[in-house]
Computed example of a mutant assay.
Amino acid sequence: MPESALGQYYIGLMSGTSLDGIDVVIAQRDRCGFKQIAACCIDLPPSLRLQLLQICQDKKVDLQTLGEVDHQFAIACATAVNQLLKDSHIRAEQICAIGSHGQTIFHSPQGPLPFSQQIGDANLIAARTGITCVADFRRMDMAYGGQGAPLVPAFHQALFAKQGCNRVILNIGGIANISILHSDTKVLGYDTGPGNMLMDAWINLHHDKHFDKDAKFAQQGKVAPALLAPLLSDPYFAQAAPKSTGREKFNLSWLQQQLHALTPHYFTPHDVQRTLLEFSAITITEQIKLQTSPCAVYVCGGGALNPLLMQRLQALLPDHTVLDTQILNIDPMFVEAVAFAWLAEQRLYEIPIALKEVTGAYKNAILGAIYKP
């Protein structure tokens, strides 16, 4: 990166599979990488969130609704950017670019015609903010045979890798993914499976809440082995990397099918919640143990705020040290948003992103399309 890049500002926008809001961060390039300057999370308008959930769950949408939701989500992103700029007293002219992940509505990396679809019209974001917007980060990787996900391991390597030290960066959003940062090899990363998604869906079904704050619902229950075993037997967990997944695979309907297959077994709602937490913890830690010797595991994403999940991760990884990314100077809730600010910078400088080992692409590609206001 040229010396002139130091001090430049970028904005990252991230809305993940949890659909809990839009994370917005202003980040600045410094000699150590990127540092977080300001950040916020903006709730999605309830009607928009419901539409997105329905589209993701039903896997069906008419063209007019798709176009309107694409428009609505972009306006929500632009509004969030403008509000953060106002609150942080930073002018739009000071921002080099916005990196917008968009909202994934369908991710299908397997099969003869793989694709990944994100909404959030970058033209509108650029027009409403007056800032160049970089978006559509996944599809060029897929054009070269990759999964298009996860994208953040390259950022984790750039920002968090340490010479002579092995580390794991664990992001627990709706889906959980790991980045294995070996001191002497290239980064490895993939989706381990569900993170918060099933837990969020289950508590929303029973208590109309977006998530189980402080794991209070889960802590009322006990792990149900009769339910846990079939969940763990899903073929995804035996699949070799590179691999990625999403709401298309692991969703409330999938969970309800598992429960229906276990009739006449009865599980209390809080026992299911506790079992889902254990399911996430086991599938995450089994992959970390498979890929690493004892080292530090740094957690980011909403799962970092779940005390019971963090306890279970540490208990299942007794030889590892489980921390969150705050100790690495980035708020665990905004690591992914900072990653998309970084990806925007890489696109402006036309730097290929080293993801071959992560996504399975046969070529490292320059990712993202540029939309100028």
Rank of each mutant, 00 (worst) to 15 (best):
L262G: 03
S116K: 08
L343C: 04
P46F: 14
I172C: 06
K249N: 10
P264S: 06
A143F: 01
Q257T: 08
A27H: 02
L276Y: 06
K162Q: 15
G221I: 03
A154H: 11
V61N: 03
K60G: 01
S244A: 07
I288M: 11
E248T: 01
G195L: 08
L85Y: 12
L317R: 05
L228R: 10
I131V: 00
R128D: 09
M333E: 13
M310E: 14
L305K: 15
L316M: 07
T132N: 07
Q51P: 00
K222Y: 09
I282N: 11
P46R: 11
V322L: 11
D191Q: 08
F211W: 15
Y10P: 04
V81Q: 05
N171T: 09
L232E: 14
E68W: 01
Q287L: 06
K209N: 10
G174I: 03
F160D: 04
L198C: 10
A361Q: 07
V297F: 04
M310W: 10
I175D: 13
H89D: 13
L277D: 07
D43Q: 09
Q94R: 11
S244Q: 08
N196R: 04
N364Y: 06
A304V: 02
L276D: 11
R91L: 06
A5Q: 13
G302I: 09
H182S: 09
D141V: 01
Q28R: 14
A365Q: 15
F250G: 05
K216Y: 10
S253V: 01
L66M: 14
D43I: 00
L317W: 05
F155S: 03
A218S: 14
P332H: 12
R247C: 02
I125M: 08
A78G: 13
T283R: 14
K186P: 04
V81A: 04
T132A: 08
Q239R: 14
A80Q: 11
A135D: 05
V187A: 01
D331Y: 08
P112L: 00
A201G: 03
